[in-house]
């Protein structure tokens, strides 16, 4: 009976800590690990530890990195006049994949949410203000998620940034590229209209 196999119970328990992994998936993954070669399992274990030990927060922009400061913050060729504020390191990676933005980033490590006990002091806002004070930035681009927490955070930042007399912009909401108009939902269309621009 499974209840007596301690290491298996342990493994399932640990896997369940991962996001999106429920009891069922944890069990399935655990059994497939049991079926793997020892080498393969060792290499999963090593990859987990390697990632944990070698990936750090960049002390400048708070994105994730394996060098300090990170490659983006180090890059002398990037545009020193723009800084883009995002919630998570994942967002930096997404924007970098898009590739057209050449400025710097600042990761807040979350968004304001009293419900999850996240206030301004839990975000990298103090560090942001210090950077803006010292840097040569002339434009701040706010690229937070379009949910209520992201909107509240954007509004809070907008107020804080007023004294800096910089240009503060936010990225547009709108139609996905390649999407046909008729398949877009009404809300997306409405935002797309509000954010329209001159040709």
């Amino acid at each position: 009976m499974i209840g007596h196999i301690k290491p298996l119970i342990n493994l399932i328990g640990e896997l369940k800590r991962l996001p999106g992994i429920g009891p069922r998936s944890a069990e399935r993954i655990a059994y497939s690990i049991l079926d793997m070669d020892e080498d393969a399992v060792a290499s999963i274990g090593k990859a987990l530890m390697d990632a944990k030990l070698n990936i750090k927060r960049c002390p400048v922009c708070f994105s994730i990195t394996d060098e300090i400061p990170c490659r983006i913050c180090k890059d002398q060729l990037r545009d020193k006049s723009v800084i883009c504020i995002v919630e998570n390191a994942k967002d930096v990676i997404a924007l970098e994949k898009a590739g057209n933005y050449k400025g710097f980033y600042h990761v807040l490590e979350g968004s304001l949410s009293p419900g999850r006990n996240i206030g301004p002091d839990n975000l990298r806002i103090k560090e942001l203000l210090e950077r803006l004070d010292k840097g040569e930035f002339v434009e701040v681009i706010i690229a937070l998620n379009p949910n209520v927490e992201g909107e509240a955070t954007a509004m809070y930042l907008n107020r804080l940034l007023k004294p800096f007399s910089m240009k503060v912009t936010r990225i547009a909401h709108g139609l996905p590229i390649g999407g046909e108009l008729e398949f877009a939902d009404e809300m997306t269309l409405m935002y797309a209209f509000e954010d329209r621009k001159e040709l």
């Binding site: 949410s113 009293p114 419900g115 949910n147 209520v148 927490e149 509240a152 939902d185 009404e186 809300m187 409405m190």
Partner: peptide, 17 residues
């Protein structure tokens, strides 16, 4: 649709406040 979405957002913000 707009009302539907706004009322969900309203409830979330209300909870936060």
């Amino acid at each position: 649709v707009e009302y539907f979405v706004d009322s969900i957002k309203y409830k979330k913000v209300l909870e936060q406040r």
